[in-house]
């Protein structure tokens, strides 16, 4: 059952990166859209993510529940030593989640819209940035439970070159995912061109920040290159991601939308796989050189068993219903 639970955990994290990430990306795209096109972008975006908005964010809840029920030591280690970035990410989640709904459901459309929009854009950016910082911190090896001073214990664990670079890389990936998703949600030629431009821009940004991640890793003495290039799985994942990049640009220029989505999702999945496979099942790398492993810190057998059962039962109920939601509200090609 441990395997089932870990599979669900990985799936929930991946889906949150892809679906929640695309939601964050929508705000990020809006941030980088010229003022005259913003209201159009907003409209397309609302039609695209409105119906699936709440569902996309449930993956985070699923991941966090799996962690605190099944792997309490990992959950509490993160909570204590990454308290500050988690709190900032949560503020971002609260701000953007409410601003998104408020701006749509405010019965009077007036100057308040200006405020909602600002909050939504900036908090989308901040949330994605800190989600990335947290992910980077888990593998950066800067978290130090033995620390005695405030800075080492609660700040340097996440405020380091590597984590921050991963943060910006995540922002670019989210923007990229959103742009690709939105291309397929509009039938209007100029809109499509605009989103394609955005996707290209974000893709270049992702490549640039991706390079920064490697440079930061060198600087912080993190063996990222070894993880990615010395393991077969890491290497093949990165090769597949690079190959799909070429295909993706070809399709972007051609304007093929549905295949693009799958390809973009595939690409991000490969990147996550390349980075995380080398130290799986370790979840947190500590400064001492030790690691916190999913397999070793799993809760008692009965807990894992009932958690796995609950997840299996849940997915039987959730997945078909969710699939139908996505199917029903997808944009029909005209």
């Amino acid at each position: 059952m441990k395997d089932v639970v870990i599979t669900f955990l990985c799936m929930a994290i991946l889906l949150y990166f892809l679906l929640g990430g695309a939601d964050f990306g929508a705000g990020i795209i809006e941030l980088f859209t010229s003022t005259k096109n913003r209201s159009k972008t907003r409209k397309t975006m609302y039609q695209a993510i409105g119906p699936v908005w709440e569902a996309n964010h449930m993956w985070l809840i699923i991941a966090i529940v799996i962690l605190f029920v099944g792997f309490p030591f990992i959950y509490t280690t993160m909570s204590v030593y990454l308290h500050i970035p988690l709190a900032i990410m949560l503020i971002g989640i609260i701000a953007r989640g409410t601003a998104f709904v408020f701006r749509h459901y405010d019965a009077v459309k007036d100057d308040m819209q200006w405020l909602y929009n600002r909050i939504f854009r900036y908090s989308s950016f901040v949330t994605a940035l800190f989600l990335g910082i947290i992910a980077g911190s888990l593998i950066s090896g800067h978290i130090d439970p033995l620390a005695t001073d405030f800075y080492t214990a609660y700040i340097s664990g996440w405020l380091n070159w590597f984590s921050v670079a991963v943060g910006f890389f995540t922002v670019a990936l989210c923007g990229f995912l959103a742009a690709i998703y939105l291309i397929g949600e509009t039938n209007e030629y100029h809109d499509k061109r605009r989103f394609i431009k955005k996707a290209e821009f974000m893709n270049v940004a992702a490549v640039v920040f991706g390079a920064m991640v490697f440079i930061a890793a060198q600087r912080d003495k993190i063996p990222l290159i070894d993880w990615v290039f010395k393991s077969t799985v890491g290497l093949s994942a990165i090769i597949l991601a690079s190959l799909s990049l070429v295909l993706l640009w070809y399709l972007l220029i051609k304007g093929k939308t549905k295949v693009l989505r799958i390809l973009a999702g595939f690409q991000v999945t490969m990147i996550l796989l390349a980075i995380s496979y080398a130290h799986f099942p370790n979840f947190i790398r500590l400064k001492s050189g030790n690691a916190v492993s999913l397999l070793e810190t799993a809760g008692p057998e009965k807990t894992i068993y009932s958690l796995g059962l609950a997840l299996l039962l849940g997915s039987v109920l959730i997945l078909p219903f969710l699939g139908y939601l996505f199917y029903k509200f997808q944009k029909k090609e005209e």
Binding site: V52, E54, A55, I61, V65, F68, V69, T303, A310, I318
Partner: peptide, 24 residues
């Protein structure tokens, strides 16, 4: 966490279903 987590993991499911149904 491991002791009283059962209702939370079921709640995760219920909440998820609620969010999907609300979308519909």
């Amino acid at each position: 966490g491991p002791i009283f987590g059962m209702p939370f993991s079921l709640e995760g499911t219920a909440f998820f279903i609620e969010a999907i149904a609300l979308g519909f």
